[in-house]
Amino acid sequence: MRIEQSGPAGSRVLAFGGYQPATVLTNDELSTRVETTDEWIRSRVGIAERRIAEPEETIVDMAVEAGGKALARSGLLPADIDLVIVATCSAESPMPAHAPSVASRLGIHAPGAFDLNAACAGFAYGLGTADGLVRSGSARNVLVIGAEKMSQWVDWTDRSTCVIFADGAGAAVVTGADRPGIGPTVWGSAGELADKLVIDDRSSFIRQDGQAIFRWATGSIAPVALEACRRAGVAPNELVAIAPHQANLRIIRAIARAIGAPGALVAEDIVYAGNTSAASIPLALSRLLDEQRLPSGAPALLVGFGAGLAYAAQVVELP
């Protein structure tokens, strides 16, 4: 059997979009629920506040908001989208997948639609998947969304997790291009450490070994990011931005230092958004683009890592 590639030579991101719930939860407010202080939280994870969804606000609701913004900014119509990917690890129920409902509510008729769970690396995995499917000819235009309601899996009496996780969604529209605008995705996993960040079962909350994750992330992720730069043909000093998963401000800064891109703006959305898992990278980039802090057409490095322990990185040309 002879198979010819029918897709374009590359793909690119047309637009990003982000959404955060309205409710702001500050460190001072958290200190009334659990034994902590604003200084303790800022010194350990760098967070000042986070957004928390209302009980009735769902992952689908947030994904629709972020996806709708990205779609509107892309210049495409709902009818132009033929694949929707929702990356999430905080699903309210195992089925149905969120992506078909998100697509329907956005007016996208009969697309391919599926959910993807690579935890905090989910958006980077989704972007790599979209790039491959566009270039293969399996899809023309893809809406990739990271959406999380982490608050429903947090034990609000556990100081090690309740100060970190938050809710939100971020999205990107990917289309074909005559040259690569999304570099090769470098991905992998360290399954031998999978027990360091888990939800044991449907009646359990998130638990983590924060120190083990800190050591792994600060020691293992920068080489992955540098390999993504090498495969994309972009030197670190050419990057205008680095958008790591917003896990912990100390981790973000340690990875950025190890990458060695002094001219790059490092996304630190965690300070006011918390850790939104698969939503964190597109949410951070959407905010920076909204604030006109990033130039169109320049290269940015995306680096996702989290439970699994799964990781992925790619260089993208900014819309």
Rank of each mutant, 00 (worst) to 15 (best):
E4N: 12
Q5Y: 10
S11T: 08
S11M: 12
L14G: 09
G17D: 07
G17K: 11
T23I: 13
T23A: 14
E29I: 14
E29W: 13
T32W: 09
D38R: 14
I41K: 02
V45F: 05
V45D: 00
I47R: 07
R50I: 09
I52S: 01
I52P: 03
E54F: 07
E57W: 09
V60K: 05
D61V: 15
A63V: 05
V64Q: 06
A66Q: 08
K69T: 07
A70F: 07
A72Y: 14
S74C: 10
G75E: 11
L76S: 12
L77N: 13
A79Y: 02
S90W: 03
S90D: 02
P94F: 13
V102C: 14
I108Q: 08
H109I: 15
A113C: 13
C120H: 04
F123V: 02
Y125P: 06
D131I: 06
G132R: 15
G132T: 10
V134F: 08
V134Y: 03
N141M: 10
E148P: 07
K149M: 09
M150Y: 09
Q152E: 08
Q152R: 14
V154E: 05
V154M: 01
V163E: 08
A166P: 11
D167R: 12
A171F: 11
A172I: 01
T175P: 09
T175M: 12
T175D: 09
G181Y: 09
T185V: 15
W187F: 14
A194C: 14
D195Y: 15
D195L: 12
I199F: 12
G210H: 13
F214K: 10
W216I: 05
W216T: 08
P223S: 11
A225D: 00
L226R: 15
C229L: 10
R231H: 11
V234W: 02
A241W: 00
I242P: 01
A243M: 04
P244S: 06
Q246L: 06
N248G: 04
R250G: 02
A256Q: 06
I259Q: 00
A261Q: 01
A261W: 05
A261G: 01
A264S: 03
Y272L: 07
A273Y: 06
A278P: 05
P282F: 00
L283T: 01
L288S: 02
R293H: 03
L301Q: 05
L302H: 04
G304K: 02
G304F: 02
G304E: 03
F305L: 08
A307L: 03
G308H: 08
Y311P: 00
A313C: 12
V315P: 07
V315K: 13
